[in-house]
Design a protein around this nucleic acid. Structure first.
Lengths: 201, 201
DNA sequence: TTTTTTTTAATACAGTTGTGTTATTAAGCA
DNA sequence: TGCTTAATAACACAACTGTATTAAAAAAAA
């Protein structure tokens, strides 16, 4: 009977090698040979787990998004609504090294997907689900009467979404000018501007 | 005496070929041979104008930024302050096809520069000058007493900057979900939220 | 141990890459 | 016209690319 190896584990191992190369050299540096070397295995081995470079890239891209998604879904969310929102968004923006890495990788993949038909659907899917998340955030604030009255919820959702993605981008391309505390501070300020004044605050 | 050809014009011609390829195929598609073909000239000609691929890319990147800069600098800016600000920012975000093209190209270069030491300084320089622009915008609003009192101007400048870059990114990666009118509307809404209520409005 | 199948390693191949070199061409001044 | 020099074209080269093929090795069950 066959030698049993955790298939999925090996694939993740390769995907993580892809991530490291992207961070170090950009997506241009991701050749199959380099990935195999980075993962400490042979080119033949890599091809056993991925039929093509495209498949490897698609898997690596999906893995980042699923990692973030899982982290978001396993959040306790036991604070009040505003606190939960800040916690939620804190999982997306580069507040620490791990999230900075994910952001770097994500930006590389998103840009690449713009001209790569095979990756575009995934990119769009994730962008859409994020947009949906911001819509839910604003809606839940409105339902809880925490949102300032008279606001266009659809517009505010998109504004918030754009702001957060802008912070993510700035955190990656100019980390010294957009530190973690500043990112958190700007998000907090934006929420302040959206919410009615809390009496007990 | 030598055949006289407008050197700079030829270089721009090549840079624009680079832009077209970036929009169509991404930066990965920008090989020197393809650029020469796209520009309708030979590889040898290209190499006569650019010693290396890096030089070509650096020039192409700089040309986008200078084009935007010139457009911004030649703005009439004869309206009131708020109107001027909207006009200014309207030159940066993808409100029409030309600005969409520039945004696509700019995102490609910015991402590429993350792992390309030769392009990083330029990328940083432009990002810094944009940050400075937003700082001036907020400062001028504060000086004109148009800004709501009590705001942290430094933070508001960065928030505005991040929002605008987020809108640019969304306009490129999800144009059907972030149309020109929405971008303009969000910017207008953001300015509303920053400014004191105008009596005559 | 023997057998079976996966997993790995090695090599090959055609295509593309950036860059360098060498003729040829063409244009402007005298 | 003739001369000078920029501009172009063509070819060469080594390195790297994704992918394919083939032989060797390794591990689990019998």
């Amino acid at each position: 009977m066959p030698k049993i190896v955790n298939h999925e584990e090996r694939r993740e191992q390769l995907a993580k090698a892809v991530w490291r190369i992207i961070r170090r050299e950009g997506l241009e540096g991701v050749s199959v040979r380099r990935v195999a070397e980075e993962a400490g295995m042979s080119l033949g081995s890599l091809r056993h787990y991925f039929d093509s470079q495209s498949a490897l890239l698609a898997f690596s891209m999906r893995l980042v998004s699923e990692r973030i998604k899982k982290r978001v879904q396993s959040l306790p969310l036991d604070g009040d609504l505003r606190e939960n929102i800040e916690t939620l968004i804190g999982q997306i923006v580069p507040l620490d090294e791990e999230r900075l890495a994910e952001s770097q990788i994500w930006i590389a993949f998103s840009t690449f997907a713009l001209t790569e038909p095979g990756l575009r659907p995934l990119s769009q899917e994730i962008h859409d689900s994020l947009r949906e998340m911001f819509r839910k955030i604003i809606d839940s604030l409105a339902q809880s009467k925490l949102l300032k009255p008279g606001l266009d919820t659809e517009l505010e959702a998109k504004r918030f979404h754009a702001l957060v993605d802008g912070l993510l981008v700035h955190g990656v391309i100019a980390p010294e000018a957009m530190r973690a505390e500043e990112i958190a501070g700007i998000i907090a300020r934006h929420l302040d501007s959206l919410l009615v004044q809390q009496r007990g605050a």
